[in-house]
């Protein structure tokens, strides 16, 4: 049967075309970013970039690499994630098993949403004030604390989202067997929701390692690998930023390579968390 074209059909076709077009624009510009970073970064990427710390004259284009920033970033994000985990797992479990949808629980969730929206530069400034109050210098410790503050709401919210999805009958079955809320939290929820919890941890780690504004204030920057938590620490985002700011093309090329390394790490974490969650979901009740 031949289709009769009314005005509304023409509008329909037009709108659909516009939507597909904007979908392509969004997807395309995002693809463009990856392509730019890879095409500029890959030629400048060498083994010595990832295996050496900066040598003399590194920022003038001489020998060296950014191992200090890679290790520093792993320390910073690792420490921040650990501290954030110490608080966010209890909060997420308490929200679900003790508070549920009560009013008090909603206030805590609102506070988490607000914290989540506070930009990292404000966390950096706040971390700076705290460090001044305690007489701390820019150090690994300061950076870890600032990143822990940034990661706390991200991790808790992500955990809260997955824990809420736990089947209600599982909790009811545990209650019927005489479990207390604490036992449900520690033995049922953490087991059942382990894949989601791991995903949340890695998500927060990814955010932490990519953050530049907060560590700028709190962790400082150094060419050495920090030996104690009171020494300053370099980080990958700042390595990219500082090298890009240098007027020498060789150094700028290294900034592109550093950006590529950072992107690879972040994407690997993101993909890796999916893989791990998939593996862990074998041990979960369907």
């Amino acid at each position: 049967m031949k289709k009769h074209w009314h005005r509304r059909h023409i509008i329909e076709a037009f709108v659909k075309a516009v939507m597909i077009f904007s979908f392509i624009i969004v997807a395309g510009s995002l693809g463009l970013i990856l392509w730019t970073v890879i095409s500029r970064g890959l030629p400048a990427l060498t083994w010595s970039m990832v295996s050496q710390t900066p040598k003399g004259g590194f920022y003038l284009g001489k020998e060296g690499g950014i191992l200090n920033a890679i290790i520093g970033s792993l320390y910073l994000a690792g420490g921040g994630t650990l501290i954030a985990l110490l608080f966010s797992l209890p909060i997420a479990l308490y929200l679900e098993t003790y508070l549920g949808d009560s009013r008090r629980g909603q206030y805590v969730r609102l506070a988490l949403d607000i914290l989540w929206g506070i930009p990292s530069i404000v966390y950096g400034a706040f971390g700076f004030i705290v460090m001044l109050a305690f007489g701390l210098r820019a150090s690994l410790l300061g950076g870890i604390i600032a990143l822990a503050l940034i990661e706390l709401p991200i991790m808790t919210r992500a955990m809260d989202e997955v824990i809420r999805r736990m089947p209600a009958d599982l909790e009811q079955a545990a209650l019927a067997l005489g479990s207390t809320r604490l036992e449900i939290a520690t033995r049922v929820v953490t087991r059942q929701m382990l894949p989601g919890i791991v995903t949340a941890i890695l998500l927060a780690f990814g955010r932490g390692i990519g953050d530049a504004a907060a560590v700028l204030f709190t962790a400082g920057y150094t060419d050495r690998i920090p030996a104690s938590i009171l020494q300053p620490a370099a980080s990958l985002p700042l390595a990219v930023f500082f090298q890009l700011g240098m007027p020498y093309p060789e150094v700028q090329k290294r900034a592109y390579a550093s950006a590529l390394i950072l992107t690879i790490i972040v994407l690997a974490i993101s993909l890796g968390s999916r893989w791990i969650a998939g593996r862990l979901s074998k041990y979960v009740m369907k």
């Binding site: 953050d211 504004a213 990219v240 890009l244 900034a255 972040v266």
Partner: peptide, 15 residues
Amino acid sequence: AAIPSVVYGVWGVIA
């Protein structure tokens, strides 16, 4: 969403 902001910045400067 996971791509760090500094990478977006590099893209901005280059492209």
